[in-house]
Design a binder for these strands. Structure first.
Lengths: 338, 338
DNA sequence: TGAGCACGTGACAACGTTATCAACCCAATG
DNA sequence: CATTGGGTTGATAACGTTGTCACGTGCTCA
């Protein structure tokens, strides 16, 4: 700007005024300054502008697990949309489920003075963010609640959805239901598992731990876990997969071996209705979910502090046919008699 | 930092040193400064740091069409991965195919002093970036070449892939091949269509414009276009869909009406092998594609100027079965006799 | 003993911008 | 004619940080 000012024969401040469309500048000077700026290839530096004026950076941070997962990429897309409506850009960072990395990324984002944070928490202690929150950086937690910190949170009705899913399988006559889940350390997995247990308990069906397979991280391991479960001498007649990645792996394996086990998955996904087997899913509106969180964030960015709110969005059992349980008094029964 | 310095009874510079782990500071002072910083809730301001030191912002910008499309979200994921390996964060912005918006976003990213830009160009004139490129902001174009500007570019062998696809359909005996594409204004669509034409010409099959449907933007319109094409009195016996979104829509419609038309799609996608109909696709390694571009970018970021390079990645016809053309001398033949 | 050097510390300017305020011009007012 | 006031312009300080340099201390080495 100094160079432009010298070149145009005006003061620094006048250049600033022209660049910012400020009033009270002669047209002739405006033209001169713009010409000089163009000639010298002047590019405004937003960092300096932000620093001096104390304005916002027009940036928000989104911390998720991994963008490649369609669940998170949809969230990222919606967050970017909402951000755009507020003339804001989005920095997306992946924690890869690593609490240390999460903390480091959040600190980094804070030091970049983002206007707000949208966080799918991975770690189990977010008290290090307390100072930020108290100092007024808006934070909204998504999909999982933060621990050690009060803040806006948007969740799904994981428990209710899982309960309905298992309920449905029980109604169809299934008694041996295999459950595949990612790490029990993840909030959503715990909740969904609890919901499943509630449904079993309510139906008076014993909770068989050997039918629960934890630590299923991706479609590949889900396929393996499915295979192992079906290869048992007393295989389940139905599977309940606790997230979309696991469901995909289970579908592949069931299809490969032409098994007729029933399958209900948590999370809907594109093309789920075209799967080679009838696939009932616990569905919800991911975009609505993400939009709620993003709008909560901007509300806080624009209006300032309020009491932390928690929003829980409903889920819906989307039935696409469900193979029935085999006739009673088969292996399953006998096994349970042991 | 001034407050911390006063509180700790040291100079500003000493605080700076402590914060940056600079050598030559007594342990006792380090402790005192850290204690004061913690007590006052000091958070370093990277903007100021970057401004003063002239260091990089450790940020790159990614400009794509829309993150919700799995093709782009994979690119974003890989870009973020590569960026992370260089301790850099990623700002993702969507142009929504709007050239004006694209230009505005690119300017914005430049004014934020990103270290580099990864761009899937939407507009048809990128000369406005020439100044940036010449002043040393590294830019890599992805998926489509930039116009009016020399810069690194990473492309797919669109033409070759499309040629192979149509070739394969012709080999299977198909003579009436419907082609569904997004806007002809998009580079990849033009290239793929050209490849298809080349294969037809080589086989001596006339190029029938009525079998080409342009402007198919999403799965929904693809399904409609598919329906319309199959409802003709002289329907095609095979379809070639020119991107993943169109393929999805076509699969849905073919499946819905239990048509036995053959289908080959450009772009592979997750679960494509589980589709209810055999689906042959022109596949390529999206992650490799994105990684190539991102690494080209960081090479330029770190090593500075070199001559612009263009990389073209190969595609591969992934055959998953293809229904054969109907017996000769059917409708299709008769129609061509007109 | 004194030069040389490594270490430890702080004063000050600077990065590129904007806020503040003073100064100027000129027309309108009393 | 002096006074007011709006429009226009610029000098200067400041945003939060780091680079530069100068200074003091204590040690080593010839």
């Amino acid at each position: 700007m100094v160079d432009v000012a010298r070149h145009a024969g005006v003061s620094l401040k006048t250049v600033s005024r022209v660049i910012n469309d400020a009033p009270h500048v002669q047209q002739s000077l405006i033209d001169k300054v713009l010409a000089s700026a163009a000639e010298l290839g002047f590019r405004p530096n937003r960092l300096a502008s932000t620093l001096r004026s104390g304005q916002s950076t027009a940036t928000i941070g989104l911390l998720i697990e991994e963008i490649a997962n369609p669940f998170y990429s949809t969230i990222a897309a919606v967050a970017a949309e909402v951000a755009r409506a507020h003339d804001t850009l989005l920095i997306t960072a992946s924690s890869e489920e690593d609490p240390e990395r999460e903390q480091q990324l959040l600190r980094d984002l804070c030091s970049r003075r983002v206007d707000g944070l949208l966080v799918v928490p991975a770690g189990d202690d977010h008290s290090f963010l307390r100072a930020e929150v108290e100092m007024g950086i808006p934070v909204v937690f998504l999909d999982r609640p933060a621990t050690g910190l009060l803040a806006d949170t948007v969740l799904l009705d994981n428990r209710g959805g899982a309960r309905a899913a298992v309920q449905r399988l029980l109604d169809a006559g299934h008694r041996r239901i295999g459950i595949l889940l990612d790490s029990i350390g993840v909030y959503t997995m715990r909740e969904r598992l609890s919901g499943a247990q509630e449904a079993l308990a309510q139906a008076g069906v014993a909770y068989d731990l050997t039918l629960v397979r934890e630590g299923v991280r991706d479609p590949m391991t889900a396929a393996v876990a499915t295979a192992e479960m079906l290869d048992r001498s007393d295989p389940p007649t139905a599977l309940f997969t606790l997230n979309n990645r696991i469901t995909v792996g289970a579908v592949q394996e069931l299809w490969r071996r032409e098994s007729d086990a029933a399958l209900v998955g948590f999370d809907d996904f594109e093309l789920s209705h075209l799967m080679p087997r009838p696939l009932t899913v616990v569905a919800y509106d991911v975009r609505e979910f993400a939009r709620t969180a993003a709008e909560l964030l901007f509300e806080r960015v624009n209006r300032g502090q309020t009491w932390p709110r928690t929003v829980v969005l409903p889920t819906q059992l989307l039935e696409r046919g469900l193979s029935l349980a085999p006739a009673p008094a088969t292996k399953a029964r006998r096994t349970r008699a042991h």
